[in-house]
Amino acid sequence: MTPFGARLRALRQERGVTLQQLATAMHVSAAYLSALEHGRRGRPSAGLIHQVNEYFGLIWDDAEDMVRLARLSHPRVTLDTSGLSAEATELANLLASRIRTLPGDTIQRLRRVLEEAGPPGGRG
């Protein structure tokens, strides 16, 4: 599941909206929305994000959060470590080989470490 997919599912459940109802309103297939929710489809388009925000009446911070979640929702990630240290390459390979078996609390700890390091490309 992707962050965008998890939020989309939560919104549907909170509001009592079925996949079919949302799909009909947005002129897409229920299968496509299901694939988005389950992480079997890539990032949604800006237009689809706008439609979701409009359908659920999301504005300001909530709408921006959907855009942020969509950006973080590519189910297949490629890490380019060329030009980085051997330690960075090793870390990327360790994460790739073990991410499927990491417990949730470990994933949360790793995420916090990365967030505390500061914004991407910047110095924390």
Rank of each mutant, 00 (worst) to 15 (best):
L110S: 05
L33Y: 04
R98K: 09
Y55D: 12
P44E: 07
V28A: 04
D105L: 00
T81F: 09
Y55W: 13
T24L: 08
R109N: 09
F56D: 09
L8K: 00
L48S: 08
I107N: 07
T81D: 12
A92W: 11
G47R: 02
G39C: 05
G83R: 12
L110M: 15
L91V: 13
G121E: 12
H38K: 07
T78Y: 10
V52L: 11
T18S: 15
M26P: 02
S97C: 08
Q13K: 11
A86I: 15
T101G: 10
L94W: 06
L102S: 07
A25S: 14
A46N: 06
L19Y: 14
M66D: 07
G83V: 11
G118V: 03
I107E: 09
R111T: 15
G104D: 10
S97H: 09
L48C: 03
L8Y: 02
D105R: 01
E115V: 02
S45V: 03
A117K: 06
V77S: 04
Q21D: 13
T101Q: 14
P44K: 01
L110K: 00
A86D: 15
L8M: 08
R68N: 03
A86L: 14
L84R: 14
E116R: 02
I59D: 12
M66T: 05
R43M: 10
G121L: 05
L79V: 15
A86M: 13
I59L: 07
A70F: 00
L79M: 14
G16F: 04
R41P: 02
H38V: 09
D62T: 04
R9E: 13
S82T: 15
T89K: 07
F4Y: 08
E64M: 04
L22N: 09
A30Y: 03
L19C: 10
L94M: 07
Y32G: 04
I49V: 14
L33W: 05
G104K: 01
E37W: 03
V113E: 14
A88C: 12
S82Y: 07
V17N: 05
G122Y: 02
R41C: 03
S45N: 04
L94S: 11
G42E: 12
A96H: 08
G118N: 04
D62W: 01
H74G: 13
D65N: 07
L79F: 13
E37H: 01
I49C: 06
P3M: 02
H50D: 15
P3H: 01
L58N: 11
F4A: 08
G121S: 10
Q108K: 06
G121N: 10
T101H: 09
R109L: 11
T2K: 01
D65M: 08
L19I: 03
T106F: 00
G39P: 03
T78P: 00
T24H: 08
D65Y: 00
F56N: 08
L36D: 11
Y32R: 01
L95T: 10
E90D: 13
L72Y: 03
H38Q: 11
W60R: 14
L102C: 05
G83M: 09
G16N: 04
R71Y: 04
Q51P: 03
G57C: 13
S82P: 01
R112I: 01
